[in-house]
Amino acid sequence: MIDVFWDGLTGGFEGVWILARVVIPLMVVLEVFKANAWLDKANRVIAPPFRKIGLSQDGAFPVVVASVFGLTFGSGVILSNIRENRLSDTEIRISGTFMALCHALIEDTLIFAVLGIPIWILVVPRLALAVLASYAVLWFFSVARPRLS
């Protein structure tokens, strides 16, 4: 009984140690990003390809924030941005679709990479499916639905 508890506890602490090595440096890097407003600057460069899936520069910003910071840590910035920029319903749905499938690309990737999983297999499917699903939403809102009504 005590043995089992001890095994579980040491296993748990091992898990915490794995994650501490990812989370603590990551939080330091993210603070530096925030202090320098690097995401606003990066967004101007990153935004253009998002036009292909129907997102303007304002619409791409929450997606960029979510991809780097994650939905939970980025939620404050994401929600205030959506509200302030008055995105269209289509853009809200597209950015929401992208964000739901693809976010926290640094954190989520590193915590599994520490276990020995190749990084590309953690990133490529999420990005690819997010782009495909967003494109499908854009097609639905711009082609399929207008034709129905």
């Binding site: 089992v4 508890f5 095994d7 579980g8 506890l9 296993g11 748990g12 602490f13 898990g15 915490v16 994650l19 501490a20 989370v23 603590i24 440096p25 990551l26 939080m27 330091v28 890097v29 993210l30 603070e31 530096v32």
Partner: peptide, 25 residues
């Protein structure tokens, strides 16, 4: 950043350790 990292790690340990113990049991 360091403070946030440590707080987050402590938050996470509240989830990871009980889960690991429960699954081991």
């Amino acid at each position: 950043g360091l403070y946030k990292g440590i707080v987050t790690t402590l938050e996470l340990s509240k989830v990871i350790i009980p889960t690991a113990v429960a699954v081991t049991f």
